[in-house]
């Protein structure tokens, strides 16, 4: 058969002018018996696909897709984390040689070399041998890259308490907020406490106030004098406001505890 420019077609169609016999592609170079793609081989592929699908659906049913609270750009306590397959890049930028003055190394040079190398791998590793032993450099570099990606991902993920993270960032159902913003104590809560204890008393930098065991007097005392890691003088206002604040915290805490 003619190739390239020598090929003649009927009109502007893709039918070749010279009739070619429809001999199947010769697989004699490969040992063993061949098998028809349709339906023999495809059936096996689809059986594998069906098993895979069942496993996948089990995963989906067992683990509902996570959803955190609505994006709140003012939430300073939030520690961002990318999806797991970007963790290795995220971790790489923590190293000294990849941050600060060397940021360009971390964000462009290293990933660029790695992914660029991956892209043109066939031209770098252009020997005739295909077995891994015949091309130790290429295989070695790939193993090295793989090991470092796995190590970076592991060291990034190992410090994270995933369950606590999910617990802390649970979405608040809209319209089910227990916070009464018209309560006389809310203004004081908003200005003095909300930053650490959260808009729904759910906690953040400070512990949750839902279901607190402190009495009203104790809360008034803590708000002024602090407790544990909480510094003193968080609340600055009149005694009346202080009392309203304590009332607000106790009422809201009880309402929230009831809801759960």
């Amino acid at each position: 058969m003619h190739k390239g420019k020598g090929m003649k077609f009927v009109g502007d169609s893709r039918i070749t002018a010279d009739r070619t016999s429809k001999v199947p592609k010769d697989y004699s170079e490969y040992p063993g018996r061949t098998e028809a793609f349709w339906p023999n081989f495809l059936l096996k592929e689809w059986l594998a696909g069906a098993v895979f699908l069942v496993g996948f659906l089990c995963l989906v049913l067992a683990h509902p897709s996570p959803l955190e609270g609505m994006a709140d750009p003012t939430d300073a306590a939030y520690i961002p984390l990318p999806d797991w397959y970007f963790l290795f890049l995220y971790e790489l930028l923590k190293y000294q040689f990849a941050s600060g003055d060397w940021t360009i190394l971390g964000i462009i040079v290293i990933p660029g070399l790695a992914f660029g190398g991956l892209l043109i791998a066939p031209f770098l590793d252009n020997g005739p041998g295909r077995r891994p032993r015949q091309r130790p450099i290429a295989v070695g570099m790939m193993l090295l890259a793989l090991a470092s990606v796995i190590w970076l991902t592991y060291s990034s993920a190992a410090h994270v308490d995933w369950e606590e993270r999910a617990e802390q960032n649970k979405p608040i159902p809209p319209g089910e907020s227990v916070v009464d913003q018209n309560h006389p104590g809310f203004a004081a809560y908003e200005s003095s406490c909300l930053g650490c204890h959260g808009g729904e008393l759910e906690g953040g930098a400070g512990p949750t106030l839902v279901g607190t065991e402190h009495s009203k007097e104790e809360i008034m005392d803590i708000a002024v004098n602090g407790i544990g890691a909480m510094p003193a003088d968080q609340f600055q206002g009149s005694d009346e406001e202080l009392e309203q604040l304590a009332d607000f915290i106790i009422e809201t805490s009880e309402a929230a505890a009831e809801q759960e």
């Binding site: 339906p39 059936l43 689809w46 059986l47 069906a50 069942v54 659906l57």
Partner: peptide, 13 residues
């Protein structure tokens, strides 16, 4: 059989 397996996958999906 192929149609059956394909139907199963399509249904599951």
């Amino acid at each position: 059989t192929l149609t059956g397996v394909g139907g199963f996958m399509a249904a599951g999906l």
